[in-house]
Design a protein around this nucleic acid. Structure first.
Lengths: 354, 354
DNA sequence: ATGAAAGCGCTAACAG
DNA sequence: CTGTTAGCGCTTTCAT
């Protein structure tokens, strides 16, 4: 437990270099002009003493802390985590440290965190959450910029960065159409869930533009494999002549795949299957591996962080910023090149990542 | 963007209350003695101005920041996240804010974060990671206390909090034995992986104490469903008369379940199946729902945070602290009460959580 | 019981 | 080009 000695201060550096603290400060911050030799001497002294400016002291007179707060609306979930990591990465590169605040769906807790962050003089705040549903602004007016990531603010003037889920659904349908499917079903999450709505609407609109409709109304349920299994069973029971199922999530798609497998329907030969979220552990373990839409959450987090940095530096970008989803093609929607039946395995026309 | 006016300082409060800043400070921090009326007046004034002490200023002369850093060794993963959330929760309750630092398996990056945290004068540091394997200390000597959570330090004097994985494996085997299984196989992750080793050893030791052995040597592979499927296929092919499979992870167990299902082996009637990690999304979606071992990662994070707070307050607890795993029983190891064959569904003797 | 004053470590004016 | 000086907002002696 050998506690190292008290950290060096700037005046230690100054005296070691034989200059005044003012000079030392300028030397270290590259400000003002001075004899190159002097600057070098100061820097060497700092090096020797492994001097690191005391952040509190610096903050006290610049007002800047080089910290930002990251608050989750609801708990931290599978979606918010990549967003946060992306943001942390981008901010870290910009020399900023990130305070982690888990709101846990509790508005009181959220406001407490907000107060804490403000008294710590964060330079900015990122608000995120595990759902894309818009939420009321975290506060009416704040002395620092705020960016909403993944989740958005109900105030259209607030800066939000969100995935284009409707566009993702569009890509899913276009991909199915392009690979020759026409009789498409949609199985998704709860009807009141924003993502379920947006994705279903996107799918329906895209089909309509092609002069088609879903073979049945969207099947709303839960975001679970169990629901996927049940819904697939219902779909089979309804006797529709389906050649593709677009699912609102990878978990649902896995459930669908397992029911279809048990029922003897082959994927992708008999039916194409496509999920949403590109959750690797689900999409890759699915049999066969699942085509899905990736919202690029980490990129989204990075983008949010970059917008926040810009705002902190006086270049705000108010409004809603949308980012495209990316189609990741795997076997479940592959175009089967040849034989109808017991080929040694489907011949695949498209590849998988990673 | 109506920036609110400059935040109130303690001298605003003091003058509104008609006292000096010194008095105001003492009043607000409950220090020294003073007329109750005076204290009340100051507090009201602070309230009115919604005064929040400037953290930087306070830090500058107390030296304490009421912040801690949380560094991940490797990237942030499925295991480190609950640990971090638990820690954040406990620290937040203790008025401490948490800096999030994602080391991403890069020692340079890790040391950079360490430097940053120290120059921010954090009161303490939590080191975590996604594997339980011990790692070298993050630094030889540090001016603040460090607690390792989930991961541990190779220096036995360092304070680490880790799950008792061997004990978890023991519980798994004891549960299987208690429910009448005797011919047990073990399928797990990579041989060089610490968790795989410890769990396999724990299982073997427990069996040995009962005068039994595994039906075959532990099958080491990957932490994936695919491996679970393959290994189960191999196990069937070997023709062993197995009545239970203990898997090193829930993912592996799911893979095993699916191969067994395809092969017509019923779970739990013909074979009991048990996983590890109690990853809800896997364990619950498994058919049937999977008995598993829960490492209580959030509790572990909380415990680590509490130990860190104690250390910060001068009561360190050096050494390795172990926390038990909890057996979560679901259908995959249920005792089948009755009929051998096509019952309407297994009658279950034990329950599931949540 | 209260007020005055001296810093905490640093930056940024301003002099020289 | 360099040194001196005045704070940033707060806590903490030390007088009164």
């Amino acid at each position: 437990m050998g506690k190292p000695e008290r950290p060096a201060t700037i005046s230690d550096v100054a005296s070691l270099a034989g200059v005044s603290v003012g000079t030392a400060s300028k030397a270290l911050n590259g400000r003002g002009s001075m004899r190159p030799d002097t600057r070098r001497r100061v820097q060497e002294a700092a090096q020797r003493l492994s001097f690191h400016a005391n952040a509190a002291a610096r903050t006290l007179n610049t007002g800047r802390t080089y910290t930002v707060g990251m608050i989750t609306t609801d708990s931290i979930g599978r979606f918010s985590i990549p967003v946060m990591l992306g943001a942390e990465d981008s901010l870290g590169a910009g020399q900023m440290s990130v305070f982690l605040c888990d709101g846990r769906d509790d508005p009181i807790r959220e406001q407490y965190y907000l107060k804490t962050l403000l008294s710590r003089n964060v330079d900015g705040i990122i608000v995120t959450g595990r759902r894309t549903q818009a939420r009321p602004p975290i506060a009416a007016a704040l002395p620092v910029p705020v960016v909403y990531a993944f989740i958005s603010s109900t105030d259209p003037e607030d800066c939000s960065v969100v995935p284009d889920e409707a566009g993702g659904a569009r890509k899913a349908i276009e991909h199915l159409l392009a690979t020759g499917r026409r009789r498409i079903a949609h199985i998704t999450g709860p009807e009141h869930h924003h993502s379920a709505q947006v994705r279903a609407t996107g799918a329906a609109d895209t089909l309509a533009e092609a002069g088609l409709t879903l073979v049945a109304p969207p099947m709303f349920g839960e975001w679970s494999e169990l629901w996927g299994r049940q819904a697939a069973g219902m779909l089979l029971a309804m006797g529709h002549d389906v050649d593709a199922v677009f699912c609102g999530s990878d978990q649902i798609a896995r459930g669908v795949a397992s029911t279809l497998g048990v029922a003897g329907r082959r994927i992708p030969e008999d039916l194409a299957l496509i999920g949403f979220d590109n959750w690797d552990v689900m999409a890759l373990a699915c049999q066969p591996p699942l085509t899905s839409l990736d919202m690029d959450l980490e990129g989204l987090g990075r983008a949010a962080a970059d917008l926040l940095l810009d705002a902190i530096n006086g270049r705000p970008s108010p409004g809603r910023h949308t980012r495209p989803c990316r189609l990741v093609v795997r076997e479940s929607t592959a175009i089967v090149v040849s034989q109808p039946s017991t080929a040694p395995g489907p011949l695949i026309a498209s590849a998988r990542p990673e």
